[in-house]
Design a protein around this nucleic acid. Sequence first.
DNA 1: ATCGTTTATCGGCGATTTACGATGGACGGA
DNA 2: TCCGTCCATCGTAAATCGCCGATAAACGAT
Lengths: 111, 111
Amino acid sequence: MDGPLLHQLADRLKALSHPARLKVLVTLAGGDGCQCGAIVAGLPLAQSTVSQHIKVLLEAGLIRGGTEKGRACYCLDAEALATLRRDLDILFSALHAPAPDAACEPEKAHV
Amino acid sequence: MDGPLLHQLADRLKALSHPARLKVLVTLAGGDGCQCGAIVAGLPLAQSTVSQHIKVLLEAGLIRGGTEKGRACYCLDAEALATLRRDLDILFSALHAPAPDAACEPEKAHV
DNA sequence: ATCGTTTATCGGCGATTTACGATGGACGGA
DNA sequence: TCCGTCCATCGTAAATCGCCGATAAACGAT
């Protein structure tokens, strides 16, 4: 887990760090098809705003698609999502503290 | 995966969506102890900036600790990290497209 | 040819983020 | 006591974000 790797991971996490964008992903996975209209309908946001969120997900490489013939058509990039999931697993594995002597519990707060 | 859940997950992901903060977590897991000084030394940032990143992680509940006696002492919140990992697993599971008829490949780009 | 629909992009606004230096408090050592 | 170190906080500047309405492009239908 060195510098560039963390940077790249942070970028993808940033794309996920907004409820609207998470909802877009879940909606796309819902099989309701790929229409953008359906996505807009499911969010309390203006169409232009949703379009921008989609753009963020596209640029992060988490979804694929575009506008084919007047109609938009987006879908999850399963491969990218799998890669992200794997990278997160690596991160969380790296985050397993190696038996800390419990020397770090200032107050543990109102237990 | 409904609204509030996505919102709460997005908040935690936001805390992770910066390379410096990821590095802080990895450093804390490195067992180098909990010193803030060690963290600052490992980052190309000013001490005040690092302190703010630590604050973000604290507020997200991903790390615990504080300043005990002049010296700072932080450590990963293993429980919170485990919860986050589980929530991410739920998300990624929800993101498994249910056999999309491959009807969504506008151009697949320059293959 | 003209409309209505769908979607992306532009311009702008307020809020938030990221970064820094400076300041101040708490502590240990000389 | 007087420094030096360590850390959090404040104030601030620059950049980015999140949102919107308006607009424009592409298309189908009339």
